[in-house]
Nucleic acid binder design. Structure first.
Lengths: 160, 160
DNA sequence: GTCCTATCGTTGGGATGCCCAATGAAATGG
DNA sequence: CCATTTCATTGGGCATCCCAACGATAGGAC
C-alpha cells in the first residue's frame, strides 16, 4: 500500500478538488449562456426553494460569506431576478424572493446545470453515479467527528 | 425520481465542491503546523516526486498558474525547502529540486496530510473509501468526452 | 420600563486561486 | 538567418474566503 498513494495527486483531497474544479468549470460555462455565475445560480435556486428567506439564512445554507451575498443579491436584484422586501416581523431582515423572470431564468439554468452535471459524471454508469453521490453525501453529512483523528477510526467495527 | 435532485445542494457539482472545501480546510489546517499552505505542500511534494523539474512542468502537473508558481517557489526557496538551479541543457528552465530540509518538512507534512485525508473519509469504511477513490479517479481521468471521439486531436504531433 | 447580548445587512481590508495578456531570453525548426 | 514556440516573470482583473467593524433591531433578564 505504501506506493499507491505516494503522489500528491492521488490523495483524496487533491483528487476531489480536481473533480470539483472541473465540475465548477462545466456548470459555470453552461449557465454562462444565461448570464449567471455559478454562485449566482446557487443563490437563485436556493431562494426559489426556500421561499422568502433572509440573506443570512441563504448564506448559512450555501456557505456564502455575508459580504459576498450582498454583492450577489445586488446583481440578481438589478437583473430583476430576485426581490428584497423588508420583513415586517423582523425589520433587520430582508425577505428575498424570486421574481417571475427569475423563475424563468432558473428553469433554463437548471436544465443547463443538470446537463453539465451529467457530463461531469458521464464516465460512470447510472448505477455508479448513484454510488458516488451516496458516498459523497455520507462524507458531507458527517460534520462533527468530535475528537480528532487519533482514535475514532476503526475501533467500532460493527456499525457498518 | 424527479424530485430527488431539486435542491441545488444535491447536485453533483455542489456536493463535490462542499466535500472538496472541507478537505482543503482539514488538510490546510493540518499542515499549517509546518508553516505550509495547501498549494505549497502540493508543490513541494510534486517537486520531490518528479525530481529536478521545470516550473512550467510543475504548473502543468498541478494545474497551477505560472504566475502563482513564481510566488510559491519564491516562498519555498526563501524557507530553504527547494532550490532553483539554471538548467544547463535549457537555459530558459529552472531545475527545481528539494533540499534536505524540504524533504524533512515534507515527511512531516505528508503524515499530517494523510491524517487529515483519513479524517475526511472517516465516515466511510475502508472498502467504501476505496470505492469512492476509484469512482473519482475514473471521473477525473476521463478527459474530453464531449464530442464523440473525434480523431482530430491525434493529428497534431507536429509540435516537435 | 432599562440593560445586555445577539443577530441582520452592510462595508472594509486582506489573502488566495484562477484567467487573460505581455515581456525578454532562449530553444527549435525550416 | 528567421519565424515560432516555450520559459520565467510581471501585471491586471475577478471571485472566493476570512476577520473585523458599524448602525439598526430583536430578545431576554432584571
Amino acid at each position: 500500500m505504501s506506493s499507491a498513494l505516494q503522489h500528491i495527486q492521488s490523495l483524496p483531497t487533491w483528487l476531489i478538488g480536481r473533480v470539483a474544479s472541473r465540475g465548477r468549470s462545466l456548470v459555470g460555462d453552461a449557465i454562462a449562456a444565461e448570464g449567471l455565475k455559478l454562485m449566482h445560480h446557487a443563490v437563485l435556486a436556493a431562494t426559489a426553494e426556500y421561499g422568502p428567506v433572509a440573506q443570512a439564512d441563504l448564506g448559512r445554507r450555501l456557505a456564502i460569506d455575508p459580504k459576498d451575498m450582498v454583492g450577489m443579491l445586488n446583481h440578481l436584484q438589478q437583473a430583476g431576478l430576485v426581490l428584497r422586501t423588508p420583513d415586517p416581523a423582523d425589520r433587520r431582515k430582508n425577505a428575498v424572493t424570486v421574481t417571475p423572470k427569475g423563475t424563468a431564468v432558473l428553469a433554463r439554468c437548471g436544465r443547463l446545470a443538470a446537463s453539465a452535471n451529467a457530463e461531469l459524471l458521464s464516465p460512470l454508469s447510472p448505477d455508479e453515479q448513484r454510488q458516488l453521490m451516496a458516498l459523497l453525501t455520507r462524507v458531507h453529512e458527517a460534520p462533527s467527528h468530535p475528537r480528532s483523528s487519533a482514535r475514532a477510526d476503526s475501533t467500532a467495527p460493527s456499525t457498518h
